[in-house]
Simulated scan of single mutants.
Amino acid sequence: MARVKLGEIYSDSGRIGDAIREHLKALEISPGNAEAYRSLGQDYSAAGRYSEAEAAYLEAVKRRPTDWLAHVVLGIFYYQRGRYPEARSAYENALKLTPDNDVVIRNLAGVHMRLGQYAEASTLIQKTLATGAGTRGYNMLGIAYYYQRRFREASSALESSLDIDNSIYVTWGNLGTVYRWLPGSEAKARAAFQRAVELAEKAQRITPADNNIHANLAEYHAKLGEKKQALAEIQAIPDSARRPYMARIALAYELIGDRKRAIETVRSQVVDASALSDLRNDPDLEKLWNDQEFQSVIRTSQSIPRH
């Protein structure tokens, strides 16, 4: 209806308050309009009104349970909040309605990755390859294989990703990480990391305040044995902004031989399911994971209420 479309126009232009008003008016006229509820959920989410957003998304699903997109949008909301089991459930409901939908399959695979369920993730991603999956699919498959210690399969998947697009620095970094675990591939690993650094620094010149690039560069420099550069990238990330990159920062510290700061990095944060999965399953962090002090920190962090 017209008010739903007008609300979407307001939302797209950043006028969230106006978008909410229009979608509420649409629901006054048509209380059962599932599309209006879905759009209202997106508005509330953009406004940081998450409890109201969740209620709107759930109402959209209730009003039109056969709409796979409503389940996907709900899953995205849960994923962004770190509520991975609920996101998995929403995506599974969507997949029942559209079993061959690559978007749903990849989203569900991503949730399995965040939960440390790498075998399930790789099985799902394989389904998308038959329909011409792009670089993202091969990249995800490479990471899933890496965490399963299936290093040769991981390198093959990542090389396939680069065959499609060799300009993505993260793919080069992931490939370098895998090569480090393949005997005789030390030179290939170094070359991959150097290419990753080159491309990441190029991206950094465009978005110098991107903390994700800083975190990735810290990891790459650490894996190259470049301690000074790794520390500089870590220091470029404000303390208040480090939580999403905690596992990578801890990894960088561990690789440059500073376990004390690796442990302190984790001690200072509440460890969510995604970070816990990375810390537990990364082959490069096996010794840190088995450290008694580190295990004590993990247990303490898991007992702290999240806000």
Rank of each mutant, 00 (worst) to 15 (best):
Met1His: 11
Arg259Gly: 03
Ile256His: 01
Val178Asn: 02
Tyr10Trp: 15
Ala119Glu: 11
Leu24His: 02
Ala46Asn: 14
Lys228Gly: 04
Tyr220Val: 08
Ser240Met: 08
Ser277Asp: 10
Pro31Val: 12
Pro65Thr: 11
Ala109Val: 10
Ala189Gln: 06
Leu108Cys: 03
Gln194Glu: 15
Asp102Thr: 06
Pro65Asn: 06
Arg149Cys: 06
Val270Glu: 12
Ala56Ser: 13
Thr265Ser: 06
Gln269Ser: 09
Thr98Cys: 06
Ser89Thr: 13
Tyr78Ser: 03
Ala46Met: 11
Asn166Tyr: 07
Ile20Met: 01
Ala46Tyr: 11
Ser303Cys: 08
Pro65Phe: 12
Ile263Ser: 01
Pro238Met: 13
Trp172His: 15
Val61Asp: 06
Ile256Asn: 01
Asp278Asn: 09
Leu251Tyr: 11
Lys25Met: 14
Glu201Met: 13
Gln42Thr: 14
Lys228Glu: 13
Asp258Ile: 04
Met246Lys: 00
Ala209Met: 08
Arg150Trp: 14
Glu186Ser: 12
Ala222Cys: 08
Ser301Leu: 11
Asn281Thr: 10
Asp284Gln: 14
Ala55His: 04
Pro85Glu: 10
Asp163Cys: 02
Arg106Val: 15
Tyr44Arg: 00
Tyr84Trp: 12
Arg106Cys: 07
Ser185Phe: 13
Glu159Tyr: 11
Arg205Cys: 03
Lys202Val: 12
Gly257Asn: 00
Ser301Gln: 10
His214Trp: 05
Ala56Cys: 03
Val266Gly: 00
Leu251Gly: 00
Phe193Asn: 06
Gly257His: 01
Phe193Ser: 08
Asn93Lys: 12
Leu158Pro: 00
Ala203Trp: 10
Ala154Cys: 10
Ile256Trp: 11
Gly257Val: 02
Val266Cys: 10
Ala250Met: 06
Tyr78Val: 07
Gln126Lys: 09
Asn33Gly: 03
Tyr44Gly: 00
Arg106Gly: 02
Met140Gly: 03
Leu162Gln: 05
Val61Trp: 09
Ile249Cys: 03
His23Trp: 12
Ile125Leu: 15
Phe193Val: 11
Trp181Arg: 04
Gly116Arg: 07
Ala191Phe: 04
Gly116Trp: 11
Tyr147Phe: 15
Lys227Glu: 13
Asn33Arg: 02
His71Gln: 14
Ser301Met: 10
Gly14Thr: 08
Ala252Phe: 09
Leu74Met: 12
Met1Val: 07
Gln229Ile: 10
Ser268Ala: 15
Leu129Ser: 00
Ser11Leu: 13
Ser51Trp: 09
Asp43Ser: 15
Leu162Ile: 13
Ile125Val: 15
Ala94Thr: 09
Pro31Trp: 13
Trp172Lys: 00
Thr265Asn: 02
Tyr220Gly: 02
Thr66Leu: 14
Lys227Ala: 13
Leu97Ala: 08
Arg63Asn: 04
Tyr79Met: 05
Ile234Phe: 07
Tyr37Ile: 05
Gly132Ser: 10
Arg49Ala: 07
Val271Ser: 03
Ala94Ile: 13
Arg63Gly: 02
Lys228Tyr: 09
His112Glu: 14
Asp284Cys: 08
Tyr57Gln: 01
Gly110Met: 09
Arg180Asp: 14
His23Ser: 01
Thr135Asn: 02
Arg205Pro: 01
Ala36Thr: 04
Pro244His: 12
